[in-house]
Amino acid sequence: MMDIRYHIATLIAIFLALGVGILVGSTVVGSDVLNDQQKKMIDQLEKQFEVLRQKEEDLTTRVEFMNGLLRHYEDFTEALLPSIVENRLAGMKVALVVSGGLDIPSGALNSLSLAGARIVSTTVILPGINLSSDSLRSKLAAAYGVGDKTSPEELRIQVGKTIGDIILNHDVQEIKRLLEQNDLVKFNGDYSILPDAVIVMGGASSLDYYFPETIDVPIINNVSGAGVRVLGVEVSDVKYSYMQVYQAQKITTVDDIDLIPGQVSLVLAMAGESGDYGVKPTAKKFMPSLPPGYAGGNR
C-alpha cells in the first residue's frame, strides 16, 4: 500500500512539473511539436496513474475482505474454545506471576476458568522494581544482609528468590511486608496453598520494566527446583519479548496468550503437552496437536 501511494505521489509531482514545463515551453518556444510531445507524455502518465489507482483500490478491497475473514475466524475460535478446554485442568491449583508491567489478558483468565483451574494467588511485579531509589536499595540491602553497595541487579535477584519462596509458602513474612510496603510487589490470594503449576507472564512495553534475568529467572529456578511446574507466557504483540530467556530455563512457553489459539495452547500445555508454542520466531510449534475425539472436555 505504501509503495503504491509513493508512486502516486511521484506521478502527481511529475504532472506538476510538466504543467510548469508546458507553461514555460509555450511561452518561450510556442512550438506545436513540443506541445504534441508533452501531450503524449501526459497521456502516458495518466494511464500509469490509472493503473496504480486501480491496484490500490483492489488492494483496499482485498484488505477489507481479509479483515472480515479474520473477524469470522475469531468468532469461530471463540465459539469452539469451551468445547476444547472445558474441565481439562479440573482441580488444578495455579499461581500467577505478572512481570514486565503488562496485564494478563482477560481471555486467558477466562480460559483457565473454563478449564477448571483454580487461581490461588496472583503476584504482580510493580514498576518500583527498577530500584532507582538509593534509600530503597539501602533498605533491601539491610533486609538481605548484604552491603550498601550491592548492585540493583543483585538485589532484584534476591527479590526474585523471595517471591519464589512466598509462592512455595516459605516463612519470609518480614521480607514480604517490606516488598509490599515499598510498592515493589503486590501479593493477592492465599499463599498458604502450594500450587500445582505457576504461570509467569513476562514481556515488557518499555526497557524500564525489562528484568527477565534478574526477576523472572530467579522465580522460575526457585519454584521449578521445588518440583512445581512453571510455564512462561506473554502476549503476541509485546515490544520486548521474554521468550528466549524463558526457553533457556527449559520451561514450556506460549507467546500469544492474548489470542484464542494461545489460550488453548496454555491449557493443553498445562495438561501435559510441553513445548514452545505461539506465533513468534522463537516458537517451535503453533499449538499442541488435538488428538482425535479431544473436543468435548472430560465429561
Rank of each mutant, 00 (worst) to 15 (best):
L259M: 13
S236W: 01
P212S: 08
S192T: 15
S106E: 15
D165Q: 13
D32I: 12
I14Q: 10
Q158M: 14
S111F: 07
L59G: 01
E86G: 03
N221R: 15
I215V: 15
V63H: 03
K149T: 12
R88A: 05
D103E: 14
T150D: 02
V120Q: 07
A269R: 05
D183W: 08
L194P: 03
A117D: 03
N87D: 15
L45S: 02
L59M: 13
F65K: 15
I104D: 02
D75F: 09
L178C: 05
V245I: 14
T150V: 09
R71P: 00
I22N: 05
L18Y: 06
I125P: 00
I12E: 11
P218F: 06
I220W: 03
M270N: 05
G189F: 09
V20K: 11
T282C: 00
L89K: 07
H7E: 14
Q263H: 11
G107N: 13
I8G: 01
S31M: 02
L81Y: 06
G296I: 05
L23E: 07
D208L: 11
D237I: 03
I220F: 06
L102I: 13
G68N: 10
S205K: 10
T27R: 11
G107H: 08
D165Y: 08
P288N: 08
G68P: 06
G101R: 07
I220L: 05
E153P: 00
Y144F: 15
T123Y: 02
L136T: 06
P292F: 09
V198E: 04
I163Q: 04
T10A: 08
I8S: 02
T150A: 04
R118V: 13
Q173C: 01
I22T: 11
F286E: 07
S224W: 07
M2G: 06
A117Y: 03
V124Q: 09
L207R: 15
Y294G: 02
Q48I: 12
